[in-house]
Simulated assay, not measured.
Amino acid sequence: MGVRSVDLPGAVHLVLPAGVVQLDPQRAVFDGMLESWWRQQRSRLSRESTIKPRIALVRRFAEFTGLYPWQWTPGEVEAFTSSLVSGGRPLAHSTVRSYQMTLRLFCEFVTDRRYGWAEECVRRFGQPPVQVCHEWNTVAHLSEYEGRPGRRALTYDEVQALFDAADDRVAVIRGRGRKGVLAAWRDAVVLKTVYAFGLRRQEAAMLDVVDFRRNPRVPRYDRFGSVQVRYGKASRGGPARRRTVLTVPEMDWVVDLLREWVQELRPQFGPGEHPAMFVTERRGRISRGYLDVAFRRAARDAGLPEELDLHSLRHSYVTHLLEFGYPPLMVQQQVGHSHASVTALYTSVSDEFRNRLLDAALARFPMAEGAAG
């Protein structure tokens, strides 16, 4: 007995009307599956920026195999994975796992009888789609951190070298009488802001002037006592998470910097009514990708290792706050992590800091004179 057709977002009868004959039925069914999966994900409040890459990956997998979903087998997944990790630039462990998870989700959708795709494929092509991603042919999630091993926190000297390089670029451009002084100045301010508040790329790019607020506890910081981050990393299917990041005394050098930016430098871009904190020469908002460019340029000029990236400044913020002596819970709240274990992964305290802790511990437990080592 078949499953009764219902108007679930993604149901086959909503995409492939009965009585319509397609010139290329296989292509029509495949396109219908993708359209239906799009609708189903939207009904679960997944963002378009999440859905588009998923759809593109499924098309890429189909093109790689030369087969349609009802023809896929686990062997195709294994061959696809091998292609991803082969060659001169193999993909990261986490990227491969995310690709496999996307294929698993798509197969779960088209094999779910409530949507009718399995039954439709049997009727049209004599075989249903099956799940092709299993525990035995996909990457296991065995580690909390799967990012690039080279990503780490910058030392204090590296942070200073990065900022010096960004400032020097302003002076060089001005000295040559070339255009771009304001843009270079903005880039230096952005990099320092990312570090001073531990921001992600999206969070920094989406900052508005009004997001900076007073902290009644520290009136001398004026309107830069805190920043409301409104575009934090979202949970699956959820809205962007918000948090308030307080300006800490060790980073209060950023207050004068931001005051100068808002009052003197930003107006020279002629932003008009645009709310963005960091604007472009065309009076728009800077992009996340541009922030990466700004970091790489300053890091190259400073002679820093190539494996460091903009996100390393966020790692640096976490590490340095802990070294300053802030409680782990406060650091966790400042950077917007849901779990302390995630914050711990960002931490790479220096040998000097660990030695200070060790010296303090040894002072609490003095060894008797002449005792064995």
Rank of each mutant, 00 (worst) to 15 (best):
Q40K: 14
R236V: 14
Q333R: 13
F324W: 06
A196V: 05
Q228S: 13
H311W: 04
S98T: 09
L16D: 01
D256E: 13
D222K: 14
E63I: 07
R364F: 00
M1A: 12
A368Q: 12
R27C: 08
R148K: 13
M277I: 01
L182W: 10
S226I: 00
Q22W: 07
Y156Q: 15
V293H: 15
G10C: 03
D167A: 09
V77Y: 03
R296A: 09
A205T: 08
D31S: 10
R283Q: 09
G272P: 07
N355G: 00
Q334I: 03
E35A: 12
S82W: 07
M33Q: 10
R266N: 08
E135D: 11
V159R: 06
S43K: 01
H337Q: 09
F353P: 00
E63H: 10
A294M: 11
Q40D: 13
D351N: 12
V227A: 02
R39F: 10
L23R: 13
E144C: 08
R354L: 14
G336A: 10
Y68C: 03
Q131P: 01
T102A: 13
D256R: 12
I51Y: 04
G270F: 04
S287M: 08
A361V: 08
F353M: 02
V194C: 13
T319P: 06
A166E: 07
A56C: 03
D7M: 08
L246S: 06
Y115R: 01
T102L: 11
E281G: 09
L258A: 02
Q22D: 02
L358F: 08
W136F: 13
G370Q: 07
P25T: 15
L191W: 02
R200C: 09
D351Q: 12
P328L: 15
A368Y: 04
Q228K: 15
S350G: 05
F163K: 01
Q228M: 14
R266C: 05
Q131I: 15
L304C: 08
S348D: 14
K52S: 05
A299V: 06
V248W: 03
A302Y: 09
F80W: 15
T247I: 03
K192V: 00
E323G: 01
G370P: 05
D187S: 15
I286H: 03
V262R: 06
P328C: 01
P128D: 01
R296D: 11
A11S: 15
A340Q: 10
